[in-house]
């Protein structure tokens, strides 16, 4: 990652949302394509060491993306994204659910509403992602799940945490 690219990650638990802002070193039409074209989206959506595969995708209002993030041991994390509203190159909204290989929704886990906006900034693009888990309990469920998986991590300091919370 280029160190001068803005990155902001905020969690608002009482408001049950995550807000992520990131700048990219490319024009808006190109960044839009990376989010909305299957062959490009699959190349970056799952962070290493995970990879992304698509069962089916139709990027249109009322369409969906049925996908999995998977690792080398064969563990698959399936998701189902419904495309709700699309305003080309400006923003799109989705409803994102945990799923399985057949596309059946996992009703034990919360559904999240995503709003993704794309703003031109010279030859760069700022992408804002707001993920709303619907309720504090919904976000808590996702947090607890993440903690159980216990990905190795380094710790931030209390001062960092307070800065994050103040936003």
């Amino acid at each position: 990652m280029k160190s001068d690219l803005q990155f902001q990650f905020l969690a608002d638990v009482p408001g049950h949302t995550l807000r992520i802002k990131r700048e990219f070193a490319g024009p808006r039409d190109l960044i839009w394509d990376c989010y909305t074209k299957q062959e490009l989206l699959e190349k970056w959506f799952a962070p290493k060491p995970l990879k992304t595969k698509t069962a089916s995708m139709e990027f249109r209002e009322g369409g969906h993306w049925h996908y999995a993030m998977y690792d080398d041991e064969g563990t698959e994390y399936w998701g189902w994204t419904d495309y709700i509203a699309i305003d080309p190159q400006e923003r799109y909204t989705t409803r994102d659910a945990f799923s399985d290989a057949t596309g059946a929704p996992n009703t034990d886990l919360p559904v999240a509403d995503w709003v993704i906006t794309f703003e031109e900034a010279g030859d760069r693009t700022i992408v804002r992602t707001v993920i709303d888990y619907g309720s504090p309990e919904g976000l808590q469920t996702v947090i607890d799940m993440g903690m159980e998986e216990g990905l190795g991590a380094t710790y931030v300091t209390l001062d960092d945490l307070i800065e994050i919370l103040k936003g």
């Binding site: 990652m1 280029k2 690219l5 990155f7 990650f9 969690a11 995550l18 992520i20 990131r22 990219f24 070193a25 490319g26 190109l30 960044i31 990376c34 490009l40 190349k43 970056w44 959506f45 799952a46 962070p47 290493k48 947090i143 993440g146 903690m147 990905l151 991590a153 380094t154 710790y155 931030v156 945490l161 994050i164």
Partner: peptide, 20 residues
């Protein structure tokens, strides 16, 4: 938890940087 979430998104976006 914060650090894991941040790392997940940073990893994802680092790949998008490479693709761009």
């Amino acid at each position: 938890w914060f650090e894991e979430q941040r790392a997940f998104w940073q990893g994802r976006y680092a790949q998008l940087d490479d693709l761009v």
